[in-house]
């Protein structure tokens, strides 16, 4: 059974296929409005999420399907100690496809190994979040018309930021991509991502702690939140949480064509004043995320022979 746990589970051709489907959904929503009638998506969310869960639910409803599930582990059998394997087997009896978020890394893979319906990883701790990357990719595609010849600045928590790792993985498969990695020393990109993806594929990158110096060269600025839940130590979180805050004055030297992305939710790392700037794309990203989730649900249900 085909599942999507990591963005690398999808080939470049499949990413293009998903983008193409999403663009068609945007153009012709009525064509897709009943395609999943009678089908059910189970949203198994073992940790809080507003955006991703609602995005999946909206996606399934817009395809004409139904949704069941839970939004915190306390309201599931996990609170009684049920294993993920058993939960996945059980839910497979009720739903045609599963979207799962869990705080532990690798949880979605365990579910996929045991489910008899497709599983989409909606975030497994600090590990992977492929559908956020799909949202990022559609946004970049719609803003820039493609993925080649871009200088992409990644700013903030590059150590624990799963969206950053997935985006690097996805973009590194395109031509002439440059990365500028902007973070405090303590939150630098892990060496396994740096060596395993950037160095291995000869992708040019630079590391810096200075956002303003890097700004003029960027085509994309991908901001991230320093996430409290990724820290064991509250002191470290408090010390680093305000490391990079994007304000209008920091955009003075930015390109007019810059696109500012953020996986959201933001805390304070992008000033609300930026929302009015035409370069702000993070709410477009939210909408694009829904379209890509629709495209992915369709693809996996088709491959499973469900629709």
């Amino acid at each position: 059974m085909r599942s999507v746990i990591d963005i690398l589970d999808l080939t470049v051709e499949e990413l293009e296929e998903l983008i193409s489907t999403a663009l068609d959904i945007i153009e012709n929503p009525s064509k897709y409005a009943h395609i999943c009638e009678g089908k059910k998506l189970a949203t198994l969310f073992f940790e809080p999420s507003t955006r991703t869960r609602l995005s999946f639910e909206a996606a399934m409803y817009e395809l004409g399907g139904n949704v069941l599930g839970f939004s915190e582990s306390n309201s599931s059998s996990a609170a009684k100690g049920e294993s993920i394997a058993d939960t996945a087997k059980t839910v497979s009896c009720y739903a045609d496809i599963i979207a799962m978020r869990h705080p532990k890394e690798g949880a979605a893979l365990v579910a996929a190994n045991n489910a008899t319906v497709p599983v989409i990883n909606a975030g497994d701790g600090g590990h992977c979040h492929p559908t956020q990357t799909l949202a990022d990719l559609l946004t970049i595609y719609r803003e820039k018309g493609g993925f080649d010849n871009l200088t992409v600045g990644l700013c903030g928590d590059l150590k624990f930021g799963r969206t950053v790792h997935s985006l690097i993985n996805a973009l590194s498969r395109y031509k002439n991509i440059n990365f500028v990695l902007i973070s405090p020393e303590e939150l630098k990109l892990p060496s396994y991502v740096k060596k395993g993806i950037l160095v291995k594929n000869n992708i040019p990158y630079e590391q810096t702690t200075d956002l303003e110096t890097a700004m003029p060269k960027l085509d994309i600025l991908y901001m991230t939140r320093v996430q409290r839940e990724r820290f064991f130590n509250e002191e470290d979180y408090l010390r680093l949480k305000d490391s990079y805050i994007l304000t209008p004055d920091k955009l003075k030297n930015a390109k007019e064509s810059l696109s500012i992305l953020h996986p959201l939710p933001r805390v304070n790392e992008i000033s609300v004043a930026i929302d009015k700037d035409k370069r702000a794309c993070y709410f477009k990203q939210v909408l694009n995320g829904k379209y890509m989730r629709m495209a992915l649900i369709l693809k996996l249900l088709k491959e499973a022979g469900t629709i």
């Binding site: 294993s83 993920i84 394997a85 869990h102 705080p103 532990k104 890394e105 690798g106 949880a107 893979l109 365990v110 497994d124 701790g125 600090g126 395993g196």
Partner: peptide
Amino acid sequence: KNPRCITSCEQELQHIFELTD
């Protein structure tokens, strides 16, 4: 040894490592 790994809380899971390099 990653305390955030699913193997740290699901006792029945096998600990599987793959040669990546």
